[in-house]
Design a protein around this nucleic acid. Structure first.
Ligand code: FES
Ligand code: FES
Lengths: 144, 144
DNA sequence: AATAGAGATGTTTTCAAAATCCTGTGAATA
DNA sequence: TATTCACAGGATTTTGAAAACATCTCTATT
């Protein structure tokens, strides 16, 4: 579905959303722990997210990552597009070069419904909303 | 979504369904051409499908693969389970060890709907039905 | 029985994703 | 302005799926 990088990215976004604000920045180490991701790997992903303006970063002492009000409005889809590109939108489920109405694979019409739902799911909900969920304590970003 | 092997497997099943019956068996080379799959790779996949009893095979001269009436009743889900196991059913979209109600990731409830649709899609339709579709000429197993 | 066709099985190679390592750069603080 | 903290970014290594290769086994045909 999503690449490993993308899974980490989504979790990191939700994690930072929950733990930080403009005042308290959060470091790579803490993100890695909080999301069960390899530290160096998540560091690289955070860079990508930062370059894509999905999250803010501050260098130096007391630096780290944080999200402002607008960052919280990003959707999962924004994160997915930043990391995995638009392959969720364009890939054929049976591996044809592109998913299209003109050259549909046998499962295309059945898959179309699934895809529509999937896209709705990742576009509808914002990171901010998931942060709220996490606050309730009923959801988890890692095992244990 | 599905592994490359699984994509090939589904395409091969539909292809053989269309091209063969108990009399005419179809060889690995033809399957590879018809599905745009690497010959040696698809050969291995066909073995798996055969071992899992999803398709029949005959060795020796005039041998090859074919499907009987019952084989045509297999669902895409049967093929997916044979090749990819049950990870479609058990994987968490954010990479937690397992997707569960007890330890749900923040996207779990939203994803549940998507997953339900996906499973319905692969369980509802039989290979035989996709063969019919292909016969109509409006669907394709490969590009060009 | 010998031959050749065709799948079955096992091993090796290739390649891209994932993970790691290392050096660079900006910012805060003393 | 020197130092140190923490992100930025390139280069490299590791890993596992995908693909290719080689060999074995079975069977129809002669
Ligand atoms: S063409 Fe295969 S899913 Fe659309
Ligand atoms: S727990 Fe993540 S999808 Fe169910």
């Amino acid at each position: 579905m999503f690449s490993k990088s993308c899974e980490y990215a989504i979790k990191a976004m939700i994690f930072v959303a929950q733990k930080s604000d403009n005042e308290t920045r959060i470091g790579v180490k803490e993100i890695a722990k909080g999301t069960d991701a390899p530290e160096h790997f998540i560091a690289k992903i955070m860079q990508d997210l930062s370059r894509r303006k999905l999250i803010h970063s501050v260098k130096g002492p007391n630096g780290g990552f944080y999200m402002d009000k607008q960052d919280l409005m990003s959707s999962i889809a924004d994160v997915v597009r930043a990391i995995d590109g638009d392959k969720i939108y364009s890939d054929c489920v049976l591996g044809l070069k592109a998913c299209s109405e003109k050259n549909p694979c046998p499962v295309h019409h059945e898959y179309k419904e699934v895809k529509k739902n999937l896209i709705k799911m990742i576009e509808k909900n914002t990171i901010g909303e998931f942060k709220e969920k996490l606050d309730s304590g009923k959801y988890f970003l890692k095992n244990n």
